[in-house]
Structure formats: structure tokens, C-alpha cells
């Protein structure tokens, strides 16, 4: 089933609420610094173009992969360039030298962002969504996306992707992060029907 126009709008709306929640959580974690977010884009990405979702497939990022289950199942990927994580740690007055500390801080950020996003989706349908523990990698962006789709055993030739960019005032420049949601195709249909039943009567 191809998602119709209104379904894309529902996903966009759900994404906007979700990302608003996530940005608020991130901002309070960073001592109330401004966190800017883009309006989520919902796209059907062909598998062969998936490696370019992030832009440059070779860009090195810290990425957290968070599979989630419940009424809607799928995968969330939260990613930041490494220098952005170091800047965040400086904001939180944490020592950036310790590598494992950087990983655990990043894991915590991913936890907060993904959970608050999913909570917003939950509140739209009343369904419980359960994120699992984030699994972190530091490598090429293209490799991350490709591996996540493979872990989902993505047998379709395209994926529905809800994509939002984060940015934050970081001294002289904005630091770009990204949250990507890839719902399982089957559960996505059910989710959209539940939203329709609640809001479009």
C-alpha cells in the first residue's frame, strides 16, 4: 500500500510534535541552550540512494541505533558529528578527553531524544512504544544507514524515512545533528489507521 498524501501529512505532523519534544529535552540537558529543529521531511527513499540520506556517505559520525517495538515498530537513528558531541560535553562542563565518557554521554543524548520523540507518537495513538537500549557506532554515515536497513531485513526496494535535522548554537557555528526514523512498513499502515480513527472521524 502506498501512503496517500494525507498519510504523509500525518507522519509529518507526528514528527513535528515528536521533534519538538526531543528538542525540549535536549535543550534542558544542555542548560537551556537554544536547539533548532527543522520540520521533518517524510520521503520514500530507494535502497540504492539510502547511503546518501545523510549527505556525504563518507562523513564520519557518532550514530546511535535504537530499534523500537510496540504499536509502531522500526528503527531510529540519532547521529552527530564527533566535534558536536565534544562541544555538547563542554556545554555540560564535562571532560571531553575520556573517550568512553563521550560514548556514554552520546548514548544518553540518543536515549533522551529518541524516547521523547516516541512518547509524542504514543500520545497521538495511545499506543505504547518501547525503545530498546541505543547501540552506538562511530563510522561513515552511509555505512550506518545501510547497516540499519539490513538489520531490519529490509526486503523492499525503498524505505519510508522521517528525517529531521537538529542544530544548536555552538560558539561560532551551528552544529548539525540528525534524527532518522524508519518505520516497518507493515506496522506503519496500522499506525496510520489508528491516527486516522482518532483524528479524522
Amino acid at each position: 500500500m502506498e501512503a496517500r498524501e494525507w498519510q504523509l501529512d500525518v507522519l509529518k505532523e507526528a514528527g513535528t510534535v515528536g521533534i519538538g519534544n526531543a528538542a525540549k529535552a535536549l535543550s534542558s540537558m544542555l542548560c537551556d541552550r537554544m536547539v533548532y529543529v527543522s520540520v521533518p521531511s517524510v520521503r520514500f527513499v530507494p535502497l540504492s540512494e539510502a547511503a546518501w540520506i545523510w549527505g556525504d556517505p563518507e562523513a564520519i559520525i557518532l550514530a546511535a541505533y535504537v530499534p523500537f517495538t510496540g504499536g509502531l515498530s522500526g528503527s531510529a537513528v540519532f547521529g552527530l558529528p564527533e566535534d558536536a558531541v565534544r562541544t555538547f560535553m563542554r556545554f555540560m562542563s564535562l571532560a571531553a578527553e575520556v573517550e568512553c565518557e563521550m560514548y556514554s554521554i552520546f548514548t544518553e543524548m540518543a536515549n533522551i531524544v529518541v524516547t521523547s520523540y516516541l512518547n509524542a507518537l504514543s500520545s497521538m495513538t495511545g499506543w505504547v512504544l518501547r525503545p530498546s537500549v541505543p547501540r552506538v557506532a562511530e563510522t561513515m554515515a552511509g555505512a550506518v544507514i545501510e547497516s540499519v536497513l539490513a538489520l531490519m531485513e529490509h526486503t523492499n526496494d525503498s524505505a519510508t524515512v522521517i528525517d529531521t535535522t537538529f542544530s544548536l548554537e555552538g560558539g561560532h557555528r551551528l552544529l548539525g545533528g540528525r534524527l532518522i526514523l524508519v518505520p516497518d512498513k507493515m506496522s506503519l499502515c496500522g499506525f496510520l489507521q489508528a491516527v486516522e480513527a482518532t483524528y479524522c472521524r
Binding site: G142, S147, A150
Partner: peptide
Amino acid sequence: VRTGEIKVISREGCLTALGVGSCV
């Protein structure tokens, strides 16, 4: 050469796969 694709060259050239993760 993007995910799922096959490309062929002969004599001179380069075949490139960018950001290969669990793929081969």
C-alpha cells in the same frame, strides 16, 4: 556502485562503493 547495483568497467577505470557497512 550503489547498494544493490552491479557495474562493469574494462581496460581502465575505477569501481567505487562508498560507506560500505554490513554490505559486501
